[in-house]
Amino acid sequence: MDFSIIRCARAILHVTDLAASRKFYVDALGFIETESDSEHIYLRGLEEHTHHSLVLKKSSEPNVEVLGYKVSSDDDLKALSKMFEEKGYETKWMDKGEQHAVGRTLRVQDCSGLPLEFFAEIEPTERLLQRYDLYKGARMQRIDHFNCNVPDVEKAQKFYQDELGFACSEYTDTEDGDVWATWLHRKQTVHDQAFMNGIGPRLHHIGFWLPDPLALINACDVLASMGYGDNLERGPGRHGLSNAFFLYVRDPDGHRIELYNGDYLTSDPDFKPIRWDINDPMRQTFWGHEAPDSWFNEASSVLDVITGKKIEQKPAKLKQHKPTFVI
């Protein structure tokens, strides 16, 4: 390949009330607010040295504008653009200055209809990893992954592996050998991008890395004490897949955020993907408890990068199988 994708790097979520979102993300979860204006809040984790990893953008309804990946250089952007255009994808360039704190950016809809962007440049900022006096809420460290519902998981997996250079760490398949969910990575952990069989394209959740499992427990206490008990959707618990501790919360607009800690290294070139049978209950939650119905039925809609309109959602290729869970 003529390009190198480094990692998942940022997301832009449309929210309806910036004040309510600030209270949830900054005061409760503990994100650092780098900057804000009347239309945006730019957030980052304590470990991050870049301007932001999450943008909350004021809008009339909640949607996902884009899921962003960092690449090494502008040459990578040109090579990505060439690849997408040769395969018939319509691309959109945004020059430096069109988006705050981010350089030249390539946007495109992927094979499932998810809105992607790629960029090499983002403004640096002070890393606050050892500013322990600023730690609060979930002690948010950094963005870790995206997880999306798509109608055809095998199609998405093949595209990301063959065309974008992702590797598979773990996957779930059915009795018939169909891939139900897959965990793909560019950085050397379990995943940057996961796909789950379902109505889509939709964003199921964004995962953020925490310093330790106790941060998840502290987040539960803080959220409950601030009146966000109903926003605690699933967990805390441990996944079989990835072995990570998790907690899933819903923001005031319903966007799902995973608080995540404790997966493993996938750097060796001879690492073999781990298969999980869809009927194995320990893959979903290692401790055995089930997810609520909202887990299967609710996710965030996504926008077209060219028109800005909501993407039409399609039914899943495989029949629904409620016991499945993703991370």
Rank of each mutant, 00 (worst) to 15 (best):
M1S: 11
A9Y: 07
A9G: 02
A11E: 04
H14N: 12
D17N: 12
L18T: 10
A20N: 15
A20F: 09
D27K: 02
G30F: 13
G30R: 13
F31R: 01
E33G: 09
T34D: 07
E39R: 10
G45A: 09
E48A: 04
H49M: 08
L56F: 08
E65I: 04
G68S: 04
G68P: 01
K70M: 11
V71M: 04
D76W: 03
S81D: 15
F84M: 11
E86Q: 14
G88E: 12
G88P: 09
K92P: 01
K92Q: 02
K96D: 03
Q99V: 04
C111Q: 15
G113A: 08
I122A: 01
L129F: 15
Y135N: 15
C148A: 14
P151S: 12
A156I: 03
A156N: 06
T174G: 12
E175Y: 05
D178G: 09
T182C: 13
W183V: 10
V190I: 15
D192P: 02
N197M: 10
G200I: 05
R202F: 06
R202V: 01
H204W: 11
G207N: 07
L210W: 01
I217D: 04
A224P: 06
N231E: 08
L232I: 14
E233F: 00
R234W: 15
P236Q: 04
R238W: 07
R250W: 06
D251L: 11
P252N: 10
G254R: 13
E258G: 00
Y260M: 06
D277Q: 08
T285Q: 06
H289G: 08
P292A: 08
P292E: 05
S301E: 05
D304H: 03
D304V: 03
V305N: 03
I306R: 14
K309N: 13
E312K: 12
L318Y: 14
F325D: 07
